[in-house]
Computed example of a mutant assay.
Amino acid sequence: MSIVLVVNSGSSSFKYQLLDMASESVLAAGLVERIGESEGRAEHAAGGEKTEITRPIPDHTAGFRVMLDAFAEHGPSLDEHAPVAVGHRVVHGGARFFEATVIDDLVEINIEDLSVLAPLHNPGAIQGIRAARAAFAGIPHVAVFDTAFHQSMLPEAYTYAIDREVAARHRIRRYGFHGTSHKYVSEAAAAFVGRPLAELRQIVFHLGNGASVTAIDGGRSVDTSMGFTPLEGLVMGTRSGDLDPAILLQLMRRADMTAGDLDALLNKRSGLLGLAGRSDMRDLQAARADGDADATLALAVYAHRLRAYAGAFMAQLGGVDVISFTAGVGENVAAVRAEALATLGFAGVRVDPERNASVVRGEITRISSDDSAVTVLVVPTDEEREIARQALDVTNA
């Protein structure tokens, strides 16, 4: 009674994992993509073997049939490993959802209504939810929201200083994202250092192509870098992060840019890509080593923003006990970790260069020196496992 299927749906694809939460082990994982195109693709991995098929997949319902066929043909058997719940990643829960929630028709309507706040994400989630509820009609489906963890922020942290009536009418406030990852990492870090979560002041850097940092006090998010959308905050792979909003007005007036032009500029042609013509951190590190001036500046801007948020969140928390790095860049790029904390020696933060350079992939690793006043960790994130945990908790409640 501990098998959970986790589904992460987009508009033209979905990923899935079947987990046995008794041992928190992955029984199978797969991807169905290019949904609605002339030729779809699916891959399924189980028991150390990986299979791949290509065929038309007109919609998410057909995609779930492909997934079920893969389980039937390549295992594990869903009769022998029947899920007791299906957990769905949903990017935006607005201010309505502050915890994992069993999906019924009303919840589905609310998620769809919140598409106005996440037009690139919630519509795909809805398609996946509807297909999954049809395919697994006899078990609970649970929505786990990226925004939910940040609903503990106080009004002074989530309120923008604009006309309050305009803000209320259009639901404009800071929501925060990557909450599932921040929750998982902060709890894993507390377990690793052997201290109660409720006692710890933590800063978690989730650094991937999308990036965010969160201040966590006693297991509760008190501030985070992303805001109304996942565009605010840190410099990211292709996203700008923080900038003066008057820049947008200037570009509208002087460059005749439309809302669509600005959306594409800030989300797809900015960040590291905009600064250096590339967004992959490995390429940028190599280019900097070769003396590339654009790459050097891009990485300096990136690190400057990391340090700015680290300092701000230390002030919000009144000090920090644990700092953790996670996600693709956070887990794998030692130079980024070192540069992010390079100026925090005044607060007793000391990174051991040898430990930082010797992180074991997939394992929690302490990279702070023995005399550091703050414990610094690399903590591999596992959003699917966290979704499965929350889905099981809600189902058993």
Rank of each mutant, 00 (worst) to 15 (best):
S279G: 11
I247C: 10
A289R: 13
A276F: 11
V66D: 01
V193E: 01
R239V: 05
S221M: 06
L5Y: 03
D217H: 13
R171E: 10
R65S: 14
Q250K: 01
R253E: 15
R269I: 00
A161F: 12
R195Q: 13
N356Y: 13
V185K: 03
F145A: 02
F325L: 00
G10L: 08
E37Y: 07
V32S: 06
V107A: 07
A189F: 08
I35S: 04
P119H: 03
A300K: 15
N209Q: 10
A82C: 11
L234K: 03
T214D: 03
G218F: 12
F97V: 00
M257F: 14
G138M: 08
M1N: 12
D244P: 07
A168D: 13
V90N: 02
L392R: 10
F136E: 00
M226T: 02
V4T: 08
L299W: 08
L120Q: 04
S152H: 04
H88M: 00
V142L: 09
M257N: 06
V374C: 03
S152T: 14
L248E: 01
S12C: 01
V351K: 03
A315L: 12
L234G: 00
R282S: 11
E52T: 15
V90W: 04
M314A: 13
S23N: 15
E187S: 11
R305A: 01
S115A: 14
Q127M: 13
P58M: 04
G260A: 13
A340L: 10
R173N: 04
P380M: 07
H206D: 01
T375W: 11
D242T: 13
D113G: 05
L275M: 13
I111R: 05
R278D: 05
A347W: 12
H81W: 12
F346Y: 12
T147V: 05
Y16Q: 10
S240Q: 01
D290W: 11
H141N: 03
L18I: 11
V185H: 00
A357Y: 06
K183Q: 15
P123A: 02
K268I: 03
E232Y: 02
S115Q: 10
A334H: 09
L18F: 08
L117R: 06
A189K: 07
D294A: 15
G318V: 02
N332G: 04
R169E: 14
M226Q: 02
D69C: 09
E354P: 02
L317V: 03
E99Y: 06
D146H: 09
